[in-house]
Amino acid sequence: MIDLYYWPTPNGRKVTILLEETGLPYRVVPLNIGRGDQFTEEFLKLNPNHRMPAIVDHDPTGGGAPIGIFESGAIMMYLAEKAGKFWPQTLREKYEVTQWVIWQMANQGPKLGECGHFRRLGDTQGDQSYAVRRFTDEANRLYGVLNNRLYDRRYIAGDEYSIADMISYPWSVGWKAQGQDISEFKYFKRWFDEMRARPAVERGMAVGADLSDDPAKLPPEELERRKKILYNQRARPAPEK
């Protein structure tokens, strides 16, 4: 059994899509990031970066003690290797997939996240027009990267569906909030529509749909507390020896 420390965000949904595609047994451990569950001492032992998702595999290949893994890209690689699916292990094919997994972690996820952040922020913290323009344009560039990649192949890493597709899809679902029009990217849109129609993708995207809080029902002081937790973090002091 795999314990998945999870909240329904794009980074969490990458992993639930893969788990649904592989059929590996898993249990969701809700980690309410607005409430601050990611900062508990118990979770920091699993992920010193205090971010979700993270997993604990209680039945690792080859036996032995449970294995804990954080960072969604590493989790995707681990689970795909464990299942023997969606991450080919021959040299050329393996690194064709791997480079796009890392592209998503280093480019698509962070830049689209910043795009959404500044577009939601509006003028509540002063003039954000440069940041909004900067990250909206970068989001557009990244959709163009995928569009150009997909014009002559069915999936991101070639003709075979892989973790490169699963890791990239959840972040692209928010294209409207990112200020984009995916009808401009016809090859990307063809891929997007195919991904959305996969039953396991639909199931993975739906995991935890009942967990999220409705911001409209939270008091102003709680909303302010959550903003500080999510957006104004600084270094956590190291323990004294």
Results as ranks from 00 to 15, higher is better:
Pro88Arg: 02
Gln89Thr: 12
Gln89Met: 07
Gln89Ser: 08
Thr90Val: 07
Leu91Lys: 12
Arg92Asp: 08
Arg92Cys: 05
Glu93Cys: 03
Glu93Phe: 02
Glu93Asp: 15
Glu93Lys: 11
Glu93Val: 04
Lys94Gln: 13
Tyr95Ala: 07
Tyr95Met: 09
Tyr95Arg: 10
Glu96Met: 14
Glu96Asp: 13
Thr98Val: 13
Thr98Tyr: 12
Thr98Glu: 11
Thr98Ser: 14
Gln99His: 09
Gln99Tyr: 06
Gln99Gly: 06
Val101Pro: 05
Val101Gly: 07
Val101Glu: 08
Ile102Asp: 05
Ile102Phe: 15
Ile102Met: 13
Trp103Phe: 15
Trp103Cys: 02
Trp103Ala: 05
Trp103Val: 03
Met105Ile: 11
Met105Lys: 04
Met105Pro: 02
Met105Phe: 05
Ala106Gly: 15
Ala106Tyr: 07
Ala106Lys: 05
Asn107Phe: 08
Asn107Gln: 13
Gly109Cys: 00
Pro110Gln: 08
Lys111Ser: 13
Leu112Trp: 05
Leu112Tyr: 09
Gly113Ala: 02
Gly113Glu: 05
Gly113Leu: 04
Glu114Lys: 12
Glu114Gln: 15
Glu114Ser: 11
Glu114Asp: 10
Cys115Asp: 07
Cys115His: 02
Gly116Cys: 02
Gly116Ser: 12
His117Asp: 01
His117Tyr: 14
His117Thr: 10
Phe118His: 00
Phe118Met: 00
Arg119Glu: 01
Arg119Ala: 00
Arg119Ile: 02
Arg120Asp: 11
Arg120Pro: 06
Arg120Thr: 12
Arg120Ile: 07
Leu121Glu: 06
Gly122Met: 02
Asp123Ser: 14
Asp123Phe: 07
Thr124Ser: 15
Gln125Lys: 14
Gln125Trp: 12
Gln125Asp: 11
Gln125His: 15
Gln125Leu: 13
Gly126Ser: 08
Asp127Pro: 09
Gln128Ile: 08
Gln128Tyr: 00
Gln128Asp: 07
Ser129Pro: 03
Ser129Trp: 07
Tyr130Pro: 07
Tyr130Ala: 04
Ala131Glu: 11
Ala131Ile: 04
Ala131Asp: 06
Val132Glu: 05
Val132Thr: 01
Arg133Ala: 13
Arg133Gln: 13
Arg133Cys: 09
Arg133Leu: 10
Phe135Val: 00
Phe135Asn: 06
Thr136Ser: 11
Thr136Lys: 14
Asp137Val: 05
Asp137Ile: 01
Asn140Tyr: 09
Asn140Glu: 12
